[in-house]
């Protein structure tokens, strides 16, 4: 297992997590993906969704660049969370995590994800 793989496995161990992917925002390359692959968004889409959110955020904040912390898409069965990895610089990778909605308290899951993401590249 690669070092990045080890770090991503730690994210998969978040309570309620079903699948995880580490994606390069600009190119849409999936460095690592784990868990139930069929639940994950396509890697290219993860980067595009994040950038679309950034553009919307820019338009809605008086054209002031404010860092996008995370994007959440909730379906009847899952919470999809996309967020940048701290410490990756301005072109850092994105984490895409799928949580089982029936087993997850979203607020707690986000807090746990934030804590684990902090150490992913540290």
């Amino acid at each position: 297992m690669s070092k990045v793989g080890d770090a991503v496995r730690n994210i998969l161990e978040c309570s309620g997590s079903r699948a995880v992917m580490l994606v390069d925002r600009a190119t849409g390359h999936a460095f690592v993906s784990m868990g139930e692959q069929g639940l994950l968004l396509p890697a290219e889409s993860v980067g595009e969704v994040y950038q679309m959110a950034e553009s919307v955020q820019l338009a809605g904040s008086g054209h002031e660049v404010v860092e996008t912390e995370s994007i959440m898409v909730t379906t009847a069965a899952y919470h999809h969370v996309i967020r940048p990895v701290p410490g990756g610089g301005s072109d850092g990778p994105l984490l895409s995590v799928v949580f089982d909605r029936g087993r997850t308290n979203l607020a707690l899951a986000r807090r746990e994800l934030d804590a684990r993401a902090e150490t992913l590249l540290a």
């Binding site: 080890d6 390359h29 410490g87 990756g88 590249l121 540290a122």
Partner: peptide, 15 residues
């Protein structure tokens, strides 16, 4: 540098 960050840079460079 952390092992994960180094590996990411090396992987990016190869690709």
């Amino acid at each position: 540098v952390s092992a994960a960050l180094l590996e990411l840079a090396l992987t990016r460079s190869v690709l």
